[in-house]
Nucleic acid binder design. Structure first.
Lengths: 337, 337
DNA sequence: ACGAGAAATGTGACCGTACACATGATCGTC
DNA sequence: GACGATCATGTGTACGGTCACATTTCTCGT
């Protein structure tokens, strides 16, 4: 006849056992100033003893603060976004926030709004978007979201709410490196065009090409995968009207090098290849990949700082873009005459 | 003199505007059966019009169901865990659940209990642990967590709550492949020993070696990174008392091959290398890597299914382990005589 | 036309917390 | 030793839903 489900202790249970009012317990929980140390101690003892845990739902209900930030990611397991996500979680944890992640399903537009709705209905206090795809921003705009929001997006420098490594500068760095080596026929293997980063890298590439008064073939639009790079590489070897390729990420660069090797071409002897991201494996590819390093961890960390500042109403504006860095390894060399 | 902060509409606002009681609105929200279609429609119209969103905190408070599952991950951005995580999110979404992720900080034990506390205080309904480290399970045991919990852990087959690709079988597959090629001196580069998977792979390796009546050197304990594999490779080339290496993941295998190449050794001519995981890049390494494929997505999906079944009190026990598969590429060959 | 039973809808209480405010205890001061 | 100021603690209420139960409205057979 015992009660099947014992109710978890609540604030009043604690109060009763400690011989104080529930409000006093609440004060202890929220580190209120005016609490006699002895009673505080007594209350904490009881809390420990009965294993009391404040109910966040109740707390969220009354304060309308969930202490949760929402993160919207793309469904793909890329190194960059993943690394940033971890940094975000770390930073959020340190600030006492929890992170609710939600990834975009493969499908289209409704999926995004659906995800955003879901996140909002959980009363997240702010949003970090690390799936910088154009359609995501369309969805955000359409939903008229009033939440503080930070996006990892390099194209809107004026916007207070975005933060990123300067992708354009990075792409220029990579391209300039090739040009300085003497390459004149450079192909760009870009990322999916609805990715804002992909577009920025492509723009940086084209800008640099223009500034050097060079022509180029229209960039090839890829999907970030090594497989795709491999396929593109297999196509490219037929024409051979280029001496270097700038790939929009390291994985595609890897696939390219694979295809070139299959075709009997030497990298960098016959073709130079540059990647982007500097994932930890890039140094161990064959040949070790020249690439553009960006600090995904720093990005993640800062995005949370920015978001929290906005939540507090501060204007932390630590907005200087983070600069990418060119890492020269062995996949690039002057073109063979 | 207008109100600064307009309160979000609540269920009673909707009820008033629709000319019904709040309970009727509640019924509409929960798809109750006995609701006249016409009133349902009217209510939905009002909801749409005023942009009403049910407050999950309030709902969670009264039902003590948060519709959230918590995921505990390691802080490292490895391909496998990340892929599983995405699958978990997908599956959770489909079931109407949200996922709260929390990653383990680098630090030690308190960090884990702290994270678990945090997750629990958010009233997650269940837990998925994809950071299968021994200390995590210690923490879980110590905290005496009563939540439904699923772990991606291969060592406790009897336990109802774990689910995994059979790591031991995978390691045996890889090892047997080398043995069948004629290798007798095989080195194992293992993962960190507090990782349950690493330990399982090592056990599989040793079991297979024993069954073949071979001796082996004590496995080298690594940290999963390509950098580490590279360092180990640089050491190994001094002794040369082996003809093959089985690395506990693909990244370390990559580093190894890099070091071997640096030393002028041919893979697979002089040394065969096998990896584990079959990450998407493995096929494009040089040489393309022979490895053991495991379906991280399937694992993630199933873990959610298992968890939800447990939440519903069903006994879905779909427990057959998922079998890994050996993918033979070009990094393995018979030993040179 | 009437009443029974089902269908549709309404009412009161409660979930666990924080906030505003009220009250009681303590203390230095003249 | 009475007094206001300050510190410590207690009381009422609201947050936005759901649940159990009460009530009204509809449907249909006799």
């Amino acid at each position: 006849m015992e009660p099947e489900k014992v109710r978890a202790p609540n604030i009043r249970d604690v109060a009763r056992l400690a011989g104080v009012s529930y409000q006093t317990v609440s004060r202890v929980l929220n580190n209120s100033e005016s609490i006699k140390p002895s009673t505080k101690e007594r209350v904490l003892e009881v809390i420990e003893q009965v294993g009391y845990r404040p109910n966040q739902a109740a707390r969220a209900l009354v304060t309308s603060r969930s202490r949760t930030i929402g993160v919207l990611t793309s469904q793909t397991a890329h190194y960059g976004p993943t690394t940033s996500l971890h940094a975000i979680e770390d930073a959020a944890r340190e600030a006492g926030y929890l992170v609710s992640t939600t990834s975009l399903a493969t499908s289209g537009y409704e999926s995004i709004t659906d995800r955003l709705e879901h996140l909002i209905s959980q009363a997240v206090e702010g949003l970090v978007v690390i799936a910088p795809q154009v359609k995501v921003f369309d969805a955000i705009r359409e939903l008229d979201i009033r939440l503080p929001l930070v996006t990892l997006d390099s194209t809107r420098r004026d916007d207070q709410r975005s933060l990123s490594v300067d992708q354009i500068a990075g792409a220029r760095l990579a391209t300039r490196h090739l040009i300085e080596l003497g390459h004149r026929e450079i192909v760009h293997l870009a990322g999916p065009q609805d990715w804002i980063e992909a577009e920025a890298r492509m723009r940086g590439f084209l800008d640099e090409i223009n500034d050097a008064d060079l022509g180029t073939h229209p960039p090839i639009l890829g999907d970030w995968t090594a497989d795709f790079g491999y396929h593109v590489g297999n196509e490219l070897v037929h024409s051979r009207n280029f001496t270097a390729v700038f790939a929009a990420n390291d994985q595609m660069a890897l696939g390219l090098m694979h295809a070139f090797r299959d075709a009997g071409l030497d990298v960098p002897g016959d073709v130079s290849v540059v990647g982007f991201d500097d994932i930890p494996e890039a140094a161990h590819y064959w040949p070790p990949l020249t690439t553009v390093r960006q600090d995904f961890t720093e990005i993640g960390r800062r995005s949370v700082a920015l978001l929290l500042a906005e939540l507090r109403g501060e204007a932390d504006r630590n907005h200087d873009q983070i600069l990418p860095e060119l890492i020269i390894r062995e996949s690039t060399a002057p073109p063979r005459r």
